[in-house]
Design a binder for these strands. Sequence first.
DNA 1: TTGACAACATACTCGATAGTATGTTCAAGT
DNA 2: ACTTGAACATACTATCGAGTATGTTGTCAA
Lengths: 219, 219
Amino acid sequence: MATAARSTKYRRQSDTDLSRMEIMEGAALCFEARGYSATSLDEVAARISSTKGRIYHHYGSKAELFLDVYRAGMMMNFQAIEPILERQMPAIERLKAVLKAHVLCVIRTKPFQNVVGQGVDMLRHGTMPANEHAELEQLAALRDAYSDHFRTVLEQAMADGDIAYANIKIALNSVFMCINGPIVWFTPRKGQDEREIEAVADECVLYAIRLLGYTGDMP
Amino acid sequence: MATAARSTKYRRQSDTDLSRMEIMEGAALCFEARGYSATSLDEVAARISSTKGRIYHHYGSKAELFLDVYRAGMMMNFQAIEPILERQMPAIERLKAVLKAHVLCVIRTKPFQNVVGQGVDMLRHGTMPANEHAELEQLAALRDAYSDHFRTVLEQAMADGDIAYANIKIALNSVFMCINGPIVWFTPRKGQDEREIEAVADECVLYAIRLLGYTGDMP
DNA sequence: TTGACAACATACTCGATAGTATGTTCAAGT
DNA sequence: ACTTGAACATACTATCGAGTATGTTGTCAA
C-alpha cells in the first residue's frame, strides 16, 4: 500500500514535471523572442496549444514561471561543466574543455540561456516584484557560483603561466561576453549538423583563450 | 524680416532640440533600467519631472521616441570613430584606435548604447508595430554600415599579417561582444575619474585584439 | 492688445493582460 | 457506482498604460 501510493505519487510527479517542462520550453521561446514583460501568458499557452488555466495550475504567477525557466537554464549549465571540473589535467586544458562545454550548452539551450541573461539584468536594475525578489537573489547567487568555477580555473592557468590578464573581473567578464555571444548572434540554420555547431563552438573557445593571452594552438 | 523670422525659427528649433534631448536622456535611462516594453511613458516623464503631455507633443508614439534614442546612440558611435578612420597609419594601429574610441564612447553613452542593443534584437525577432518597422530597418542598416567599418579594418590588418581569424563573421561578433561588454557589466563608481575609465577601455581593447591573434603589446 | 501658436499640463478613454473564479474531465482509490 | 482530486479549460474582473482630447500659459508678431 505504501508502495502503491508511492509509485502512484512518482508517476504523478513525473507527469507534472513533464507538463511543467513543456510549459517552460514554450515560455523560454516566448521570453527569448519578445522579452519578459512583452510576453503574455496567453502567448505562452498558445505556443504549446494550451490555455492560461494550465499555466496557473502549475505556477502562481508569471514571475514564478520566469524564475523556474531561469533556474532550469542554470542547471543545464552546471550539468554541462561540473563533470569536467573534476578531471585531472593541466588547468589550461581544463579551461579549454570547460569553455567548450559551456558554448555547446548555450547553443543547444539558447532560449533558456537568454532567459538567464534577462534575469541577470532584471536583478541589476531591481525590476521584479518584491515577493519573488528573494528567489531572484538566490538564483543570482547560483550564477555567481557558476562564474566562480571559471574564475578558479582562470587563476590556476594564470599561476601556471599559460595565460595572462590584468584585472580578473574585466577578463572574466570579457570571456563570458565572448562565450555567451552565440546566445545573441547564433541563428541555427536548416540542416546544420552537429559538426558545424562544434566548429562554431571551437572558434568561440579559440577567441576566448586567445583573449586571455594564450598563444598556443587548439587541438 | 526674413532674417528675423529665420532667427526666431532657429531659436525655437534649438529650444525644441534641447527639450527633445532631455526627453531622450530620460527615456534612455528608463529603457536601460527596465527595458522598452516594461517602461511606461509616465515613468519617463517623471524622471525628467514632467508629464506625458510633453512627450506626446514631441513624439507621435512610444516607438517613435525609442527609435529617436536609437538613432542618437548610433550617431554618437559614428562621430566617435569616423575621424579615426581617415588617419594614415598601419591598419593594426587604426584598429586599436577605433576599438578604443568605441569603448570610450559606449562607456560614456551607456544608456543610449543599451537602447541600440535592444533595437537590434527587436528587429531580429520582429517585435515593433508595422508602421515604425520601416524606420527600424533603416536604423539596422545604419548599424550594419557601422559594423562594416570594423570589418574593413579587420580585413586590412589581416592582409598585413598582424591578426588572424578563421571566420570573419564569428570573429567580428566576438570582437563586438567584447568591446560592447561594458554596456552590460560596467557600473560607474563614485569619484571614478577619466584615468580609470581609460584604463578599463585599454584593457577591453587589449582583450579584443588579442582575441584576433595579435601578440604585440599595447602602447 | 490682441490673436495665434508653441509648449506644455490635466483629464480622460479604451484595449491588453495578469490574475481569479468557476466549470469540466478523467483516472485512481474504495 | 461513487467519491475525490489533479489537471486542465472557460469566463470573468481589475489594473495598468498607450494614446487622445482639452485646458493653460507664455511669447512673439502685427
